[in-house]
Structure formats: structure tokens, C-alpha cells
């Protein structure tokens, strides 16, 4: 437990170190999640386009 607390404290620099790592996690996470979300929306829209074209050609 003590070792863990010492690890979290980062020799007194906890705020600086963890905010850097936290920011990195945030921006990298967003960079991956946003395209994935966009992809789901794109798939929906493209399905609709294809469906429309099919119904038109019938």
C-alpha cells in the first residue's frame, strides 16, 4: 500500500506527471473513438443510400 502511495505521489510531482499522462490518454482516446463512432454513422447512411437506389431501380 505504501509503495503504491509512493508511486502515485511521484516524488511530489504527482500533479504534473499525472496531468500529462491523463491528457495523453484523453487525446489519444478521442482520436480513436471519434473515427469509430463516425464509421457507425457512415455505415447507416450508406445503407440508406444503397436501399434507396435499389427501390428506385425496381
Amino acid at each position: 500500500m505504501e509503495a503504491f502511495l509512493k508511486f502515485i505521489d511521484m516524488g511530489g510531482y504527482a500533479g504534473y506527471v499525472w496531468s500529462s499522462y491523463g491528457l495523453a490518454l484523453l487525446v489519444f482516446g478521442l482520436s480513436i473513438i471519434l473515427p469509430l463512432k463516425e464509421k457507425r454513422q457512415l455505415e447507416k447512411r450508406i445503407r440508406r443510400i444503397i436501399q434507396n437506389e435499389k427501390s428506385v431501380s425496381k
Partner: peptide, 18 residues
């Protein structure tokens, strides 16, 4: 830990590769 900067040098692992 770095002998001068202590643990604050660990930011290097985020900063320098970026």
C-alpha cells in the same frame, strides 16, 4: 528517478515521442 529532476522527468515518455 532522475537525480536532478526527480520523478518529474517521467513526463519525457509522453512529451518526447509526441
Amino acid at each position: 528517478a532522475d537525480y536532478q529532476q526527480g520523478d518529474s522527468f517521467r513526463i519525457i515518455y509522453i512529451h518526447v515521442p509526441a
